[in-house]
Design a binder for these strands. Sequence first.
DNA 1: TTACACATTTAGAATCATTATAAATAAATA
DNA 2: TATTTATTTATAATGATTCTAAATGTGTAA
Lengths: 157, 157
Amino acid sequence: MTNGAQEITDKLVSRQIKPSVHRMKVLEYLINNQNHPTVEQIFTRLKSEVPTLSKATIYNTLNAFVDAHLARVITIEDHETRYDHIIEDHGHFKCESCGAIFDFAISLDSITAAELDDFVINDKNVYFKGLCSRCRYKNQTDILKGECICKQTPSKV
Amino acid sequence: MTNGAQEITDKLVSRQIKPSVHRMKVLEYLINNQNHPTVEQIFTRLKSEVPTLSKATIYNTLNAFVDAHLARVITIEDHETRYDHIIEDHGHFKCESCGAIFDFAISLDSITAAELDDFVINDKNVYFKGLCSRCRYKNQTDILKGECICKQTPSKV
DNA sequence: TTACACATTTAGAATCATTATAAATAAATA
DNA sequence: TATTTATTTATAATGATTCTAAATGTGTAA
């Protein structure tokens, strides 16, 4: 499911971001690796392709993406800032035991609040915390500590 | 709406946290000031009552509260970690223009995901981002920058 | 009360993620 | 090509949080 360069360029341009080589690489990474990467993960990976890469560029780029609503920050505590390419209609679940983050489908349209009728809502976020099925049954507290296995769907784990 | 010492003690004990003087002060603050305070705000306020207070104590205490589900971290980006005494059935709205955080009522029970049937859900969080009514209409980008005026209900602003 | 054990708190150093700054590089334009 | 502008780099600065060891407080039993 590799995305073509044209698609990436179009996405950036449609959000008024000039498609520099590095920005394209970062967006491509986010689209093709929807595993809620940290800055560190993105940096390490892209550094191997572009050895001169600076971490500041990753920060700059991600901040620009967030401002432009091309990406969102998901912070389910722990000061491990992770980034998510914005795709509609999914929430996040974080297992308090193993630390894994799961995506799950949810209809964001159905989540409304009358009190906010006069507000403009640009972004809706839903996240749950608890125990994933694996930890619930096996109580394997130690395994997978901190690892993100979110490409697995919840039911598969 | 000041809470009695007994209530505070009970809350702590029920979560297996020994009710030291400082822990009681912090919990009391969270309950009586539901304005999503930062560590800095809590520290500054309590420091005036207890001059020997150390910031590390605030961190220790809040971490213990979060672990015990007595408080939650609300991180709607910006690396401004704020704490919220856990009360059921409210979501958070952050205005991207003025930075204010609003509470709004929401039925968390109605937010479900079939994929998570096998999971144990301990905590549900909902937050929206966008423009509050004031900024929407007046475009007063600069006012209230970073200030939390969340004790106002959305409709009143 | 005193002595002891144990938990809590303090102060400050250490860590780590993020941002700021200024120089260097690359891209765009004429 | 020369010139301007945007982007990226490298590193220093910042700031929030955690760690550590010493100090203080609390509870218990003699």
